[in-house]
């Protein structure tokens, strides 16, 4: 191959690379908006930032990050639910809570953050979800077993953050429905009145669907 031919080949290859780079550069943005239950799998491990305790021994939401703990996904979820819901609540309320916790964790696993040099998915405080290591309870574990092969995403299957707040007791907490957050007390309110966890989720989160996953 002559020198001239080689120069043309190099120019073409550079051009091709740049075109490919442009294509690759444009694609992730389109892909990032479409993280669905079809093209992502259930996380295997959660990276949990452990924040320092306040003087009373409680994890401080504003405290420094001490280290990042890798916890199996299911174990993470099981160690959150008893600290966010009451283990003595109605099983349907616990299932609704389990689904919210699972999808919240799944979403944040796909959107990790870096703070103070630590890259993590969630921390162990109410900044994300209240996590206490080895705090799983039999009743809450049963809720995760019940929803093991299910996911709750929007109608296109996109994984979105399912938020929740405490709400107030003995009340359907309509204002939380308007804000697209599940009320924890509200889930118990509806469960005591015979609603299933699907109905509870449908009440608080609109335009979302229950999917079966592998």
């Amino acid at each position: 191959m002559s020198t001239r031919t080689a120069k043309v080949a190099v120019a073409l290859s550079v051009a091709g690379t740049s075109v490919a780079a442009l294509t690759v550069g444009a694609m992730p943005q389109a892909k990032a908006q479409q993280q669905t239950i079809w093209n992502t799998s259930v996380p295997s491990v959660m990276r949990v930032a452990i924040r320092e305790n306040n003087p009373s021994g409680e994890p401080d939401p504003r405290g420094r990050i001490i280290y990042v703990q890798s916890v199996p996904f299911l174990e993470y979820c099981e160690d959150v639910l008893p600290n966010e819901w009451f283990p003595s609540w109605n099983p349907e309320s616990l299932k609704a809570g389990a689904m919210a916790i699972k999808m919240f964790a799944w979403y944040h696993h796909l959107h990790p953050v870096t703070i103070d040099g630590f890259t993590f998915d969630v921390d162990n405080t109410t900044n994300f979800q209240h996590f206490r290591y080895l705090s799983a309870q039999p009743t809450t574990n049963a809720a995760f077993d019940a929803i093991q092969n299910q996911a709750y995403a929007d109608n296109g299957g996109q994984i979105i953050e399912l938020n929740y707040r405490a709400g107030i007791e003995n009340d359907p907490n309509w204002q939380y429905r308007n804000a697209q957050k599940m009320a924890q007390w509200g889930s118990q309110y509806w469960a005591e009145r015979g609603q299933t966890f699907q109905q509870i989720l449908q009440f608080y989160y609109v335009n979302r669907s229950l999917y079966r996953i592998q």
Binding site: P87, S88, L134, S135, A136, Q137, P138, T139
Partner: peptide, 12 residues
């Protein structure tokens, strides 16, 4: 240790 009536609980 948090105790609720009517269910089984465990602690570590």
């Amino acid at each position: 240790i948090r105790m609720h009536e009517g269910i089984r609980q465990q602690t570590t």
